[in-house]
Amino acid sequence: MTVLVRDLRVDDPADVAAFAQVRHRALPFILWTPEAVVHRLVHTHPDARSRSLVAEEDGEVTGTAQIGLVHDSPEPGQGFLNVYVAPSRQRRGAGGLLVRTAEEYLTGEGATKLYAWVLDRPADLAFAERHGYERRRSAHFLRLDLANAALPPPCSPPPGVELRTAADYADDPRPVFELDAETVADEPGDVDVAFTDYEAWLTESWRHPLLDRELTTVVVVDGRPAAFSVAYTHGARYATAMTGTVRARRGRGLAKLAKTASLHRARAAGYTEALTGNDSDNGPMLAINAGLGYEICATEVRHVRELG
Rank of each mutant, 00 (worst) to 15 (best):
Arg92Pro: 06
Ala123Thr: 11
Glu178Trp: 02
Leu163Pro: 00
Glu214Tyr: 08
Asp172Leu: 06
Thr245Met: 01
His140Ser: 11
Gly132Ala: 07
Arg6His: 10
Arg135Cys: 07
Leu286Cys: 06
Lys259Cys: 04
His43Gln: 10
Gly79Val: 00
Pro173Arg: 03
Gly93Ala: 03
Tyr198Phe: 14
Leu4Trp: 13
His24Trp: 14
Val99Ile: 14
Asp72Lys: 10
Trp32Phe: 14
Thr272Val: 12
Cys297Ala: 13
Glu60Phe: 08
Tyr84Arg: 12
Ser229Ala: 10
Arg136Leu: 02
Glu103Ala: 05
Asp11His: 10
Arg224Asp: 15
Ala94Gly: 04
Val54Glu: 02
Glu204Cys: 12
Ala167Gln: 15
Asn289Trp: 00
His140Leu: 12
Val184Arg: 05
Thr2Pro: 11
Pro28Ile: 04
Ala65Met: 03
Arg213Thr: 10
Ala128Gln: 01
Ala258Arg: 00
Leu4Gly: 15
Gly110Asn: 05
Gly63Asn: 03
His71Lys: 12
Gly189Cys: 02
Glu75Trp: 13
Asn148Leu: 14
Leu254Lys: 03
Glu109Ser: 11
Ala26Trp: 00
Arg40Leu: 14
Pro284Tyr: 05
Trp201Asp: 04
Pro159Asp: 11
Ala268Tyr: 11
Pro284Glu: 05
Thr203Met: 14
Gly132Cys: 03
Gln21Lys: 15
Asp15Gln: 12
Ala26Pro: 02
Arg25Tyr: 15
Ala298Val: 08
Thr2Gln: 15
Leu146Ile: 04
Val218Arg: 00
Ile288Tyr: 00
Arg49Cys: 13
Val176Arg: 00
His39Met: 07
Ala194Thr: 13
Thr217Leu: 05
Leu41Gln: 09
Ala236Phe: 14
Arg100Ile: 12
Ala261Arg: 08
Thr216Ala: 04
Leu163Arg: 02
Gly132Asp: 03
Pro34Val: 08
Arg174Met: 09
Gln21Cys: 14
Asp11Trp: 05
Gly223Glu: 04
Pro158Gln: 10
Gly63Ser: 09
Phe195Pro: 05
Arg9Glu: 11
Gly79Leu: 00
Val176Ala: 03
Gly77Asp: 02
Ala150Gln: 11
Ile67Thr: 05
Pro154Met: 08
Val54His: 02
Val221Arg: 06
Trp117Ala: 12
Arg252Val: 09
Ser205Asp: 15
Glu129Met: 07
Leu41Tyr: 10
Val218Ala: 04
Thr260Leu: 12
Val176Met: 03
Tyr232Met: 12
Phe19Lys: 03
Glu204Ser: 13
Ala231Gln: 04
Val22His: 00
Arg265Cys: 07
Glu214Lys: 11
Glu306Phe: 12
Ala26Gly: 06
Asp186Glu: 15
Thr165Glu: 09
Leu31Lys: 03
Arg249Asp: 15
Asp279Lys: 03
Ile67Leu: 06
Arg267Glu: 06
Ile296Gly: 05
Pro74His: 04
Asp145Pro: 05
Thr216Ile: 09
Arg40Lys: 15
Gly110Pro: 09
Arg100Gly: 14
Leu151Phe: 05
Glu109Trp: 08
Ile30Pro: 10
Arg136Phe: 00
Asp120Pro: 13
Asp124His: 13
Trp117Pro: 05
Gly77Met: 04
Ala128Asn: 01
Arg100Pro: 15
Val301Glu: 00
Arg135Leu: 06
Thr33Lys: 00
Phe127His: 01
Ala239Val: 09
Glu104Ser: 12
Ala298Thr: 12
Gln21Ile: 11
Tyr294Asp: 00
Asp279Val: 02
His24Ile: 14
Gly160Thr: 06
His303Ala: 07
Ala239Asn: 10
